[in-house]
Design a binder for these strands. Sequence first.
DNA 1: AAATAAATTGTGTGCGGACACTAAATAAAT
DNA 2: ATTTATTTAGTGTCCGCACACAATTTATTT
Lengths: 355, 355
Amino acid sequence: MKNQRNIRIKDIAKMAGVSVGTVDRVIHRRGRVSEEARKKVEKILNQTGYQPNLLARTLGSNKTLRLVALTPDPDQDDYWALSNSGIEQAVDEWSQYSVEIIAKHFDLYNSNDFSKTIAEVMTLEPDGVLIAPIFFRESEELFKALKKQGVPYVLFNTKIANSSSMCFIGQDLYQSGRVAAELLDLGKSDKNKIAILHLYEDVENSIHLKDKEAGMRDYFNELDNPYEIIRFGLSDPEHPAFKIELKHLIKDDDIHGIFITTSKGTYKTASLLEELKKDDIRLVGYDLLNENIEYLRKGTIDFLINQSPNRQASVGISYLANLLLFKKEPPHEELFPLEIITRQNLDSYVRSKIH
Amino acid sequence: MKNQRNIRIKDIAKMAGVSVGTVDRVIHRRGRVSEEARKKVEKILNQTGYQPNLLARTLGSNKTLRLVALTPDPDQDDYWALSNSGIEQAVDEWSQYSVEIIAKHFDLYNSNDFSKTIAEVMTLEPDGVLIAPIFFRESEELFKALKKQGVPYVLFNTKIANSSSMCFIGQDLYQSGRVAAELLDLGKSDKNKIAILHLYEDVENSIHLKDKEAGMRDYFNELDNPYEIIRFGLSDPEHPAFKIELKHLIKDDDIHGIFITTSKGTYKTASLLEELKKDDIRLVGYDLLNENIEYLRKGTIDFLINQSPNRQASVGISYLANLLLFKKEPPHEELFPLEIITRQNLDSYVRSKIH
DNA sequence: AAATAAATTGTGTGCGGACACTAAATAAAT
DNA sequence: ATTTATTTAGTGTCCGCACACAATTTATTT
């Protein structure tokens, strides 16, 4: 349709009867332009709907972006290992555009280490920061520092109420609980109890798991003939108490299914259930960790809800890079789809390259 | 870590003791270079792992790409409307990189029109083509023409066996059938029959629906106590025969669920089922068409498998643009995840911007 | 050996914009 | 009125690469 080449600064300059330098100053609001000239240029700018050539802009400005990603130590947890793989993917995705991405990790179980890492992040003088704000109290400090420097930051995984971040990336946890409930509710069952297990190891989870639970409870409360819900929380899945409690729980033949609200808890539970040779309980858990995948294949786990930690991270980086490089504003909130993984569609997810 | 700026052609030239022109010739295999020089340069190229600056390359080459997308008329079918919206998304996604995307549509029910449109496509002298090869016999002609011109093309939606396209984008239809079977199989049922409905309006479907059926049948055959499968095919869902047959079908109280293998057929069936006030049959169908979404919300439809026609198209365009602009080879086959949509996760899919 | 042709290599300009620097115009100070 | 600040406008170079063209070297012919 439009056959004419794109309008350049040079064209704008000619139309406005000024030099390119003036147009440049107007576009970048560098000042040092008379009212008169400014108005003329802005008028043409609007009339033509000038769009700068982003390639030329980036090339010309000739600066390399430094993005820092702050996440828990990937060696401490498979979930965060997945997340980190998303960052690594982003590294080579953006290497072409002279974007340097530095991954900083902190101890998942130690808020002091988090605070220490914050300092390191600031030392790096980043142009943008991606943060998994596990320790939300300590995070505030970082937010303040970044805001002061005018450094944009994107949060993911853990939603923090009134932090004025550019963007949050994650999932609707409440709705996630409803999805889990729905999956447990599928088909008729002659049993009438459902268990919800919170097996968290870190602070952030203990808080957010509530949303998932609320979602599940609301779902069932809306039904005519709801399941009875048995709740069970433990901050250390390795503790012998877990096995004892679970054993006790499944002795009850009325248990139709179990919802485990953390990814690690999912395979821990599956493992125990397998050991206890109890295979008639429906299991719904989280994420495509290797161990979870195995148990899903075997049938111990029935459904996984995919939180896509890797994609959360890579999308977060993309948003920062697009903002800083191309001045493209990210959405204020990006809630990922609640992907349901079963035995039959598992491979299609594992193999897919675009995820 | 690496603090040095990226290596440029100029650097390579200096290291190899030649001029940038020679390096350029080696990189682009333009010939006119002595064996000796070529080897020297290639050695340095490998040693340094030279990566060209994509921004500069695109800017410098200063040509606008013309991509053509050839798909069925979006006004004829909601599925193809979705597909087209993916193309529109690609248009502004790539507008920055001086990529022109032209959408050409053909009559979904008229292979002659398809052939006519092929000619138009070639007249446009595209640099790359995205094709939904609905009419696979007629498509061969286009493939031949494109191959002759050395124009790369990507196929999506419909897999064609031995066409030598760069890349196919779609889903594993067989596995898709297995997923549907799994969804129908979830939970216990006292009924013992399942119906599979092929309600296709075009040729391509009639062929490919077989794969879905095979997947479903295989799934059930692997079970100890499989459902009996009732098959039903019709090339015109508007025909009164459909209503009559469906009426007859659901009179059988042993029908546990129905699998409809096309997206349009899905809401057609749901609509009839609603009209017939039959709500105890599980319905599994395809795609997030507006009407399907409504019936899913109401509960008439229980599961939708999302074929993401929009994303198939936009990814297809991306692959072509990345290939031509950045010389990034697409995968030979990209099979999308088999997304399961339920009442509870529907909104998370509808709202998600990154899909 | 000189002339010509062919093969190889080097140089320069443009892509569109950023930014530093210089030149012109205007205002303030002497 | 002249000099000196200060504001405003214009020019030039660079970013890294592609590509056309010029220059050089080497091979071939007479």
